[in-house]
Amino acid sequence: MPKTHTLADAKREQRRAYWTLVLPGFLIYISVMAFPTIFSIFLSLSDYSGGKLFGGKPVHLVGFKWYQNLFSDEYFYLALKNNMWIVFVSVFGQIPLGFFLAYVLYRGIVKFADFFQTMIYLPTVISTVVIGILWKSFFAPYGAFPELVRLFNPQYEYGISNHPMLPVLFVILWMYTGMYLIIFIANLQKIDSAVIEAARIDGATEGQTLRYIILPALSGVLVTTAILAISGSLKSFDLIYVMTAGGPANRTSVLSIYMFDKAFKGAPRYPLANAISTVMVIISFILIGLTKWVEKKFGGRE
C-alpha cells in the first residue's frame, strides 16, 4: 500500500538505499587507494624506519629531508633519464606506429584486416612476466638474438652492450603498439564515413583526407593516447623487473625499480621510497599538464 507511505518515509528509504549501495565499494576504495595515497605523502615527510606502524617507535615529521636526499642521488637521475626514454618511445614510437597501422586497416587498403589486427594486438594480452622472460632469453648471450644477427653478419661477437636500454625499449614498443592500434581503430570507426567519401569524390587525395578530415577529428584521441602513454611509461615496472631488474649496474633502472629497491631490498627505507613515488606522481601530472597545454595551443579546434 504505497499510499500510506509518508514523504519522510520515502526520503529515509532513499537515503538508506543510497548509502547501502555506495558504502561497500567506497570503503574498500578508501582503504586501499585513497588513504594509502595520502599516507604515502605523510611517510615521505617522516622518519619512519620500519617496525610497528602505531605504538612502536614514535614517528616524527622531518620535512623535505628525503627529497633532498633523492635529488642529490645520481641513480635517481639515471632512473629518471631511462623513464624519459620510455616516455619518448611510447609517445613518438607506439602512437604514430599504432596510428599508421590503424589507418591502413580502417581505410580498407589491405584485405584480412581482422587477421592483421588480431595478430598485432596479441602481445598486449599476454602477461608481462612471460614476455619479459621470453625476451630476456631471446637477447641473452646464449639466446637466439646473436644467432640471428650472425645470419646477416657472420663476424658478429656478443659483447656487453653500450646501450642496455635498447632491448628494453624495443620490447616496450613491441608489446604495446597493438593497444594504440585498437584505440585508434575504435575511434576512426566513429568518424562519419560519408564525410570521407564526399571529400574523395570532390577530388581530395588520400593525404589531404588524412590531413584535413581524419587528423582533426582525432585530435582529442591523440591527446588521450599521449596521456595514457605518459602515465603508462612512468608506471612501467613488471617488464624491466623481470628482464633486467635494473641491471647491469642500475643502467636500466627506472623510477619504480629504484623505489622498489629502496623499500624492499636491503634495509627498508620507506620514507625515501615514498618520496620517490610522490615525485613520480608529480612528474606524471606535469607531463600530462604539458600535453594538455600543447593541445590547447596547437590543435583541437573543432
Binding site: 576504495y29 594509502p36 599516507f39 610497528k52 602505531f54 619504480s256 623505489m259 623499500a263 620507506y270 613520480m280
Partner: peptide
C-alpha cells in the same frame, strides 16, 4: 574521488599498502 582514482598509480600506494596490510 573515484574518478581521481583513475589517475592514481599503483606505485604511489605500493609501499603504504604493504605497511597497512602488514599492520
Amino acid at each position: 574521488s573515484f574518478i581521481i582514482g583513475l589517475l592514481l598509480t599503483l606505485q604511489s600506494i605500493m609501499v603504504p599498502l604493504f605497511l597497512i596490510i602488514n599492520w
